[in-house]
Simulated scan of single mutants.
Amino acid sequence: MPLSKERQTSMRLPDRESHPVAAGVKIQAGALVVLDAGLAKPGFEATGLVSLGRAERSVDNTAGAAGERRVEVLRKRTFLYSNLEADPVVRADVGKPCFVVDDETVAKTDGTGTRSPAGRVADVDPSGVWVEF
């Protein structure tokens, strides 16, 4: 039905999302955040995860039920994460995917099928890997 009067239409910013946090989990501000079965967790090595971006604030749901807390995630940006020394991302990998090791580390490969994609490598420098989400 068409509007018959003005309304304040709700909106979301495309670079910010809020996701329910898994039970028993604490996500630190700045962490690489993933979805595991629809619930947010700090990044960890596993397959089938969906990388979201960076946690804007710390969220402690260690004593809560699944979804009791939510984490705000910043996306559509490029963030600096540590480079796994044992499987390093290099300059030749710019433009290619990198893979989640933990909530602050990425690697060049999927670890023979044990890691989920983190995002696209935007740059590599002595500080680490710039990952675009």
Rank of each mutant, 00 (worst) to 15 (best):
D110I: 05
A86H: 00
E104A: 11
R120S: 14
S51P: 00
E45W: 03
D15I: 13
V124F: 11
G111I: 01
C98P: 05
K41C: 03
A55D: 08
D110G: 01
Q28Y: 04
E104R: 06
R91K: 15
W130P: 00
G113C: 05
V34S: 05
P20A: 09
F79W: 15
T62M: 12
S10K: 13
G95M: 14
A37H: 04
K41M: 03
D36N: 04
A118G: 08
F44W: 02
G67C: 07
Q8A: 07
A86F: 08
G67V: 10
A66T: 08
R75Q: 11
K76D: 12
N61K: 13
G67I: 13
D15H: 15
G111L: 06
M1V: 10
R70N: 14
G119A: 08
P88E: 15
A23E: 07
A107K: 03
V89Q: 02
K76W: 13
F44L: 00
K41S: 00
G95H: 14
E56Y: 10
G48W: 00
L32V: 01
G30R: 06
S116T: 05
F99P: 06
F133V: 12
S51H: 04
V101N: 01
D87Y: 04
V89P: 03
M11H: 13
A31W: 02
L39R: 03
G113F: 02
R70Q: 12
V94D: 09
R75E: 09
V100R: 04
L80P: 05
A118Y: 02
G48T: 01
A66I: 07
V89K: 08
V59I: 12
G128S: 08
R77D: 11
V50C: 08
P20K: 09
